[in-house]
């Protein structure tokens, strides 16, 4: 089972590199959808606890929201507002991928050092969550495209969810579900703002948002 989890998580790691090296929104949101599905399934596979019907139901709901609804709502925003898929970065793609690799090395080192007692869920769990967090933050900072920024936020959120699952024995499903609904509502609101930005400025480049600079 652990091999299966690690297999999943190494794909997640690869997907981070993929997202950092791409200049197309369509690629980014496919990556986000994949990561959403992966981080929803991993908790179910982590050994050491008895899987009940409720767990499966919760996993399915998470998968539906993280893997389908959230990426699809962003995709709809792109389509509806006729936003071009290509975008220009602040930090170029090669440097971004190199940064991504660095994040993974650092994440692996940190995870090695931590040696947490409840890390039975696979060697890559903490590495992948730290890399997702750092990768998401990097996209937030290194891309001016508003949609890429929202996708970076979602990636970060996926990372936090993954850290949480390693220790989620305590949190009840209803609480996790509340968190998920908040994230979902947040992304929906961001999608509405995105459409408005596009209508107003005919672009989603945040460099145009300069009225309120001091």
């Amino acid at each position: 089972m652990i091999q299966l989890i690690d297999g999943f998580l190494s794909l997640v790691l690869l997907s981070i590199l993929f997202s950092l090296g791409s200049g197309r929104l369509t690629v980014l949101f496919k990556v986000i959808a994949f990561q959403g599905i992966a981080v929803s399934i991993v908790p179910l596979l982590i050994g050491g606890r008895h899987v009940v019907f409720e767990d499966i139901l919760f996993t399915l709901a998470t998968l539906l929201i993280r893997g389908v609804v959230i990426p699809y709502s962003i995709y709809l925003a792109i389509k509806k507002a006729a936003i071009t898929s290509k975008f220009e970065p602040i930090v170029d793609y090669h440097a971004s991928m190199f940064a991504g690799l660095l994040f993974m090395v650092v994440a692996a080192l940190i995870s090695e050092k931590l040696m947490l007692p409840s890390m039975a869920g696979g060697k890559l769990l903490i590495t992948a969550s730290i890399a997702l967090l750092a990768g998401g933050m990097f996209i937030l900072m290194a891309r001016r495209n508003a949609i890429a920024m929202v996708l970076g936020y979602i990636m970060m959120e996926n990372g936090i969810y993954l850290v949480g699952t390693a220790f989620s024995v305590r949190a009840r499903h209803i609480v996790e579900f509340g968190i998920l609904l908040d994230v979902l509502a947040g992304v929906m609101i961001m999608a509405v703002i995105l459409q408005n930005i596009k209508q107003r400025f005919n672009d989603v480049d945040t460099a145009r948002l300069t009225t309120l600079k001091e």
């Binding site: 933050m137 937030l140 936020y153 850290v163 949480g164 220790f167 968190i179 703002i193 945040t206 009225t211």
Partner: peptide, 27 residues
């Protein structure tokens, strides 16, 4: 207005990302 759109965008993004840190802290 344009300015209120920018303010809302900043508010939602900065606060959501910020509060995500608090979620990590809670974990």
């Amino acid at each position: 207005s344009d300015a209120s759109l920018e303010a809302t965008w900043k508010y939602v993004l900065v606060c959501s990302v910020g509060i995500a840190m608090a979620l990590l802290g809670s974990v």
